[in-house]
Design a protein around this nucleic acid. Structure first.
Lengths: 323, 323
DNA sequence: GCAACCAGTTCCCAAGGGGGT
DNA sequence: CACCCCCTTGGGAACTGGTTG
């Protein structure tokens, strides 16, 4: 069912149908005609052909959100739902996409021709080149702006700050940072660790270098011994999995949690509550973040600059048995 | 950079450029011209405009994979990567999409006009209506075939079978099935429970009705008492989270795991290994499933019927401390 | 290689009616 | 009463980029 079918059925021109359906400004169509067009389109089950629309006006009304290759925190799904809803109201569709580094697959921005490509982290130079070759102009984070700004955004720093403040409030004076042993996370781990060190210094705590914890070997055990020897009593974990690995090592070594060592996770995965002892963690305000993503995208469509991140608190600490 | 630019730059027609670039059969273009077209396209950085292609030939070369609303098992990401790779070779792009029941958002198939829409579970009647209205003809699972076939596919039954066989092999005679309290999972839970009952009966085990376990209240505690009273010594869990909830309740009630109660999870999430005691679970052959998804999609494009699922084993049991 | 075609969008102009001089 | 102008309403046709008889 095309617009031409609707026009023919009413004995009017395709142009008129288009004017009505798009509510074209600068064109005035009589109310009677308008109603008849709407009714007939409805009756025939007309659907705009999105490829044709994308071709005719130069924009696809698609926004592509590239997700990182690494395991997505469970909360992310919720942001995305909220972001979709906001973008939908503005007439855009949000498509998500997992970016694989293998790169044997043609990137989706070449296929979908989106108006905006967004990522949670800065894109690689290769990806940027590819996007520019495909004619994508709106990219978030904006590669032309100062490259380090994402590292100071609330979504990076809010969690670590709360973690350190929490441990400090409980009286811990020496804390360590534990992160997963995953090269893909290196940049974000560095950024988070910088926040931990910074915040610890402000509060008068000691925070030695960070340790990588693999989930599959004895690295947690080793780290544990080292920490205890160094007088560390609190551990800030990059995520709940790392926290779990540390707590598990402690239990197996008969180290009391939180008595001898307090551990706080990040992301508040559903299973963090199930662990024994249950894990303290950082929970994010998912709706707020979703809306933020959507707003950034809409700003980019209009060529406006990405607005500053909302300074309202987006993370809270959930205290459980592990601290 | 359009094909017309390439043609103009070489002083030939757009048609010829198209013939070369598409390797059109039934058209013979001289080798010299072919090479010059390729070189010029490369030099100018020509990219086919996918919306225009989709419009001209009736197909978008997009395959949409709808993921369920509930938390995706972590393994799924890997299937998808594999499926993308296979489809890419056949010239298709895979777009994934999380189906939200809220439905305030326009479904993506109306926007992308995909050649195939696939789902891991059958679609709702409303979704099917919407797809047909958008002119989507290829839908998997095929709603015109017998609706229950997915419930007997390996991806549903392989796990529960292994779980029951494992417990039976360890000498357990009475087993229970525990599932999350989530209405969205009702159908798949029923299907899995049917397999458990069936398999238990074959092996001479007793398997009473299943229990729903919420992660946030005392339902695990209650279920635990009931099971112990009924002489149950083994629990088949729908997923690792439910298994964790049961094990956590047991620890808090001083019930020995696996001494008094053995628990086996499903999906082998990364954190299952970290739990104390670590959780036995079911691991899937992710590459195989991904390839399967891709093959089904390609079959559907050609209007062929979905091939039978590959009967080779796709799941294995990982034994850990909880059994 | 020419030309038609895919489905919409949009610039520009042609009827036609109403009101004013 | 004739004439003109303007505004409303709607149509013609070119255009988007690529495919194909």
């Amino acid at each position: 069912m095309t617009a031409a079918d609707v026009a023919r059925s009413l004995g009017i021109s395709r142009a008129t149908v288009g004017f009505v359906l798009n509510n074209t400004r600068g064109q005035t169509i009589s109310e009677g005609t308008r109603q008849r067009v709407f009714a007939e389109a409805e009756r025939l089950g007309y659907r705009p052909h999105s490829a044709a629309q994308a071709l005719a006006r130069g924009r696809s009304k698609i926004i592509l959100l590239a997700l990182p290759d690494w395991p997505v925190e469970h909360t992310l799904g919720q942001h995305i739902a909220e972001a979709s809803r906001v973008l939908e109201e503005a007439g855009y569709s949000l498509v998500t996409y997992t970016l694989h580094e293998s790169e044997t697959v043609r990137p989706l921005w070449e296929v979908l021709d989106p108006d905006v490509v967004m990522g949670l982290l800065p894109f690689s130079e290769r990806d940027l080149t590819s996007m520019r070759a495909s004619g994508i102009s709106a990219i978030i984070p904006d590669p032309s702006s100062e490259p380090a700004s994402w590292e100071t955004g609330p979504s990076i720093i809010a969690g670590p700050e709360l973690q350190v403040q929490h441990l400090a409030g409980l009286g811990h004076r020496r804390v360590a940072f534990a992160a997963p042993d995953d090269a893909r996370l290196a940049r974000i781990i560095e950024a988070r660790f910088a926040v931990v060190k910074d915040c610890a210094a402000k509060l008068g705590l000691t925070a030695p270098g960070h340790r990588y914890i693999s989930l599959h070997d004895s690295s947690a055990q080793l780290a544990l011994k080292e920490w205890l020897a160094a007088g560390i009593t609190g551990v800030v974990a990059y995520n709940d999995e790392t926290a779990a690995a540390v707590v598990a090592a402690a239990i197996r070594e008969n180290v009391a949690v939180p008595g001898d060592l307090a551990v706080v996770g990040h992301d508040d995965n559903p299973w963090a509550e199930l662990f024994v002892p249950s894990l303290s963690s950082i929970r994010f305000d998912i709706e707020g973040l979703g809306r933020q993503i959507a707003m950034n995208a809409l700003a980019a469509v209009d060529g406006r600059v990405t607005p500053a991140e909302d300074p309202t608190p987006i993370a809270t600490l959930v205290r459980r048995e592990s601290t």
